[in-house]
């Protein structure tokens, strides 16, 4: 049973499986972002990156999953923003977390502000950001989907 969100409450962690090169190819295909620095090692090496790097939007997508897992199927995202801080490479294990920074009770439910971030296996932050979502009362009384 999910109680109301409280300021300071932590979200996650959502620990994703290691990023793979196949995943980057899949993400390129699914998103339409075919920049070869994400899929062609030779190109990424020539660009001085040492090898392919993940799409920033893949990591943001992971953080999006943290949020949608948190708010449950009837939650509504209102805003979501991130800053990209470090490159993510194949093999990196990304952990997404967050914290509730503000809660507003409205007639139909709760509006929740949070800060979110993702770190890689060495603890380095790869993205930081914030989000606002709305959860209706009906959903707060039901069991939330857990990650």
């Amino acid at each position: 049973m999910m109680e109301k969100y409280t300021v300071g409450q932590t979200l996650g962690p959502l620990v994703k499986p290691p990023v793979t090169k196949i995943q980057l190819v899949r993400y390129a295909g699914a998103s339409g972002d075919f920049n070869p620095i994400h899929t062609v090692d030779e190109f990424a090496v020539a660009a001085g990156l040492g090898g392919v790097i993940a799409h920033g939007m893949l990591t943001m997508g992971f953080v999006g999953q943290l949020l949608t897992d948190t708010m449950g199927p009837q939650g509504k995202m209102e805003s979501f923003s991130v800053r990209f801080k470090e490159m993510v490479h194949p093999g990196d294990v990304i952990t997404c977390q967050g914290r509730v920074t503000h809660r507003e009770d409205v007639a139909s439910g709760q509006r929740v502000d949070c800060e979110v971030w993702a770190i890689q296996q060495e603890g380095k932050q790869v993205v930081t950001g914030k989000a606002i979502f709305f959860v209706p009362h009906s959903s707060l009384q039901n069991e939330q989907r857990s990650s």
Binding site: N35, M57, K76, S79, F80, S81, V82, R83, F84
Partner: peptide
């Protein structure tokens, strides 16, 4: 020479 700096969505 392009870097994705930040990204936001309003729904």
């Amino acid at each position: 020479g392009l870097i994705h700096g930040d990204q936001s969505f309003t729904y």
